[in-house]
């Protein structure tokens, strides 16, 4: 290793100095590299964005343009009528309300119970704590399908099928391994001094959690909340199994039912897709820092 270094260094010393062309200079080369990198990245972005553009373009085309060959890239007249048709064919606003209701119901349970559990794992000592925490992490890897059928049978026997309870109530029991993990990681960054001060002032553990930890971890709680709203919004399998009619379904299930039952034109279907993805996109743009923080803290992508 050392020898190699010496050889390389000597070779460089012996190099005959000569005039460099402008593109061979270090500064210029850095700029050229940057431009090339940006061009590659730009190509990637264009490829990623074309489906989005196409979704919006098709949603505004008339019934002839969608079947045109070669395809039309820009609709001649913007047909906002497609949106009206999509929204009136299925009870869109009802589904929207159902989706919000489901997401909020889940998020409240997730934030409360996951933070409670995470507080226990982050701050309280017990002999079996580390083993139990490993168990939490193990469930992160557990395939959902292995518990799917008995869970369904359980809720069926309880008389909760069809309905939203099977989708909401489990969130109040631990709130999922991912969220526990994320909040525990965050709680562990809060200095113990806060705990000591609170204890001296006579706070119990519960008050410590409620009065000190939760207010201090507002950004982490917001991250958990936003991730879970996103998951709930996108969740398809849950509603597919537990919600049966169009009236009671969510948007994610609704577009699937819309596609299957009404066999709609492409433009209406895409209008529906736009309507479903837009709220998420808007949320993302306002809260992107939280999304990215959540991924970075835990190392798990959305």
């Amino acid at each position: 290793m050392a020898q190699e270094t010496v050889v390389l260094a000597r070779r460089r010393d012996e190099g005959i100095p000569r005039r460099l062309y402008w593109w061979q200079r270090k500064h210029a080369q850095e700029i050229i590299t940057k431009i090339v990198v940006m061009l590659i990245l730009l190509t990637g972005v264009v490829i990623i964005m074309i489906p989005f553009y196409w979704m919006i373009a098709v949603s505004l085309m008339n019934d002839v343009e969608i079947y045109a060959s070669p395809p039309v890239w820009i609709p001649e007249k913007l047909m906002f009528d497609n949106y009206v048709k999509a929204v009136t064919t299925i009870p869109f606003f009802r589904l929207f309300r159902n989706t919000i209701f489901l997401a909020l119901g889940r998020v409240v349970g997730t934030v409360l119970s996951a933070s409670l559990v995470a507080f226990g794992f982050a701050r309280l000592r017990a002999k079996d704590r580390d083993i139990l925490f490993l168990l939490v992490l193990a469930t992160l890897m557990l395939p959902g399908s292995v518990t799917l059928i008995p869970q369904f049978l359980l809720f069926y026997k309880l008389g909760w099928y069809p309905g939203m309870r099977p989708l909401i109530i489990p969130a109040y029991f631990g709130g999922g391994a991912y969220n526990i993990f994320l909040l525990r990681q965050f709680f562990m960054t809060i200095p113990l001094d806060y705990d000591d001060a609170a204890r001296i002032d006579g706070c119990g553990y519960f008050q410590l959690w409620w009065r000190i930890m939760l207010p201090l971890s507002a950004p982490a709680l917001a991250t958990v909340a936003i991730f879970n709203i996103m998951w709930s919004w996108n969740d398809f399998m849950g509603p597919l199994i537990y919600l049966k009619s169009m009236q009671h379904s969510t948007l994610a299930l609704g577009i699937y039912l819309f596609m299957g039952v009404y066999n709609p034109m492409w433009n209406q279907l895409m209008a529906m897709s736009v309507l479903i993805t837009m709220p998420l996109l808007i949320t993302f743009f306002f809260a992107q820092r939280m999304f990215i923080q959540g991924v970075v803290i835990t190392g798990i992508k959305g």
């Binding site: 489906p51 196409w54 979704m55 996103m230 919004w233 996108n234 398809f236 948007l251 994610a252 299930l253 577009i255 699937y256 596609m259 279907l269 895409m270 529906m272 897709s273 479903i276 993805t277 998420l280 996109l281 993302f284 999304f291 992508k301 959305g302």
Partner: peptide
Amino acid sequence: SVLSGVAVAVL
């Protein structure tokens, strides 16, 4: 990654 849902599968 934010939009990994049914709407995107439909698209």
